[in-house]
């Protein structure tokens, strides 16, 4: 069983929802990423999602765009991200690590080389934002060869008849985009979400995680009522960036990140009243 499947199974047995915090690798500094990853796990993260810096992050809102720019300015690209995962694995062999990025750095490295290196580093799954199932066959084959899950997105605009096409290519879990917009957008309506998750669930046994626009314990708790996992990205990235800018050191950033993730953990674990 893959680390991701194991993680969701274990959570399901205890009736809990996976908390999946997102950071851009190399932001705010190259040295901070692995330390931050460990800290997030200590505060209750179940899966770590690591953004792979790209020059043209088309699906990102301003907060994560800036994080990509900072990481690139720090000289962090796909090679360094894989090294970071390897370093994280030295101390943590349990927590699944998921990479989220764009197709070009993968394609430039070559799908075969990437799959081998990623598996060697201990990467568990991959989301490639701009690689819909129609264009993903080549990468899928390589990821399957090395046992890395390929996670696909389902958007609010995805028509019902398209859902089985996506779930058929997917493994690990399904990433349900909560809103029409970019990451960190402010127009999340948690009331609409339940029906959508149920609709997807009719097509797949895979766990369904929800992301985009989840910024605090309250929204996370609302989403956790229907989803198997909750992704928190922009809010965390902003939190770390603010603390780093103010304090200028890693400890301040760690404290800020730790507190936000602990808060959200508490929020989603609270029994529904």
């Amino acid at each position: 069983m893959s680390r991701i499947a194991g993680c969701f199974n274990q959570l399901a047995r205890s009736g809990r929802t996976a908390l999946i915090p997102y950071l851009v690798a190399g932001d705010p500094s190259p040295e901070s990423s692995v330390v931050l990853m460990h800290r997030l796990v200590e505060e209750g993260a179940d899966i770590i999602e690591l953004g792979v810096p790209f020059s043209d992050p088309m699906a990102e809102g301003p907060v994560i765009q800036l994080a990509h720019e900072r990481a690139l300015a720090n000289g962090v690209s796909l090679h360094q991200v894989l090294e970071m995962v390897g370093e994280f694995r030295d101390k943590d062999q349990q927590t699944p690590v998921l990479l989220m990025g764009y197709a070009n750095p993968l394609e430039h490295m070559g799908y075969t080389v990437f799959a081998d290196k990623a598996a060697g580093a201990g990467v568990d799954a991959l989301i490639t934002v701009d690689l819909p199932p129609e264009e993903a066959a080549g990468l899928n084959t390589e990821l399957q060869r090395v046992g890395i899950d390929n996670i696909f997105l389902i958007a609010p605009t995805t028509p019902a008849q398209r859902i089985p096409l996506i779930t058929a290519s997917a493994s690990g879990f399904i990433y349900c985009i909560s809103l029409k917009g970019v990451t960190g957008a402010g127009n999340l309506n948690t009331n609409d979400l339940g029906g959508r998750v149920e609709q997807i669930r009719a097509h797949t046994e895979l766990p369904i995680a929800v992301g985009f626009g989840i910024k605090d314990a309250t929204t996370a708790a609302a989403v956790a009522r229907t989803a198997s996992g909750v992704v928190v990205g922009s809010a965390l990235v902003q939190n770390v960036a603010d603390a780093w800018a103010k304090g200028g050191d890693l400890d301040t950033a760690l404290e800020a990140a730790g507190k936000l993730v602990a808060d959200i953990r508490q929020g989603i674990d609270k029994p529904i009243s």
Binding site: M58, V129, D130, P132, E134, F152, A155, T157, T158, I177
Partner: peptide
């Protein structure tokens, strides 16, 4: 039919745009 010119072209976009 998928928008490919040999190996070029295609639809490399986020899922939100696919139906549009």
């Amino acid at each position: 039919a998928e928008g490919h010119f040999g190996i070029y072209g295609g639809k490399f976009v986020g899922e939100t745009l696919m139906s549009a």
